[in-house]
């Protein structure tokens, strides 16, 4: 990011909406009624406008690759890419992640025996994804998260692993926007 976007125009003091004092109001304004009628006209016309509601469980939404759904661990060739470096856990502002590393025979030497994300704590900021040196944790497009107990909300490796094919869109997006 080169330049942070300048704060939007409407925030600058000189472009605030003008202050209208009571004495500036005309008689019609003051008796409210024309304004109320006008308001009613607006609300009533809205009633007949098309609706925006999506009938959720039947009609689902496929998020764009820029969407930050629940964080998942990338699985490649049957194993997670993660090397349990704990950087995601360190950067996580919500302290949602817990990683325990251990030795593996694989070339990467180190793998997470335990990798847990507390989905009740996660705020979907994507910092973990940004910090990860191995591109091993990414924000998926999944947004459906329901649990019936606090312990259910702690996702272990079995729930976090997702094959790299399913995450292709996101990985591509990340590479393009690095």
């Amino acid at each position: 990011m080169d330049n942070p976007p300048s704060t939007s125009k409407s925030m600058t003091p000189d472009s605030q909406p003008p202050i209208i004092h009571k004495k500036d109001l005309s008689f019609l304004d003051r008796i409210y009624i024309p304004q109320i009628v006008n308001g009613l006209r607006i609300t009533i016309t809205q009633i007949f406008r098309p609706k925006f509601t999506r009938q959720y469980p039947e009609e689902r939404w496929t998020p764009p690759p820029s969407f930050r759904g629940r964080p998942v661990l990338v699985e490649q060739n049957g194993v997670e890419r993660c090397v349990a470096c704990g950087l995601c856990a360190r950067v996580c502002p919500a302290l949602a992640i817990e990683v325990q590393g251990s030795e593996t025979e694989l070339l990467k030497e180190r793998y997470p025996v335990k990798f847990e994300i507390n989905m009740l704590r996660c705020i979907f900021c994507g910092f973990c994804e940004e910090a990860c040196p191995e591109e091993a944790i990414v924000m998926s497009q999944e947004y459906e998260l329901t649990f019936t107990s606090q312990d259910d909300a702690v996702f272990g490796k079995e729930k976090l692993l997702m094959s790299v094919e399913k995450l292709r869109d996101r990985l591509e997006f990340l590479r393009k926007n690095r």
Binding site: T43, I44, Q46, I47, R49, P50, K51, F52, T53, Q55
Partner: peptide
């Protein structure tokens, strides 16, 4: 009615 006014269902 409230929903309709706000373009909801």
């Amino acid at each position: 009615v409230a929903a309709a006014i706000q373009n909801r269902v």
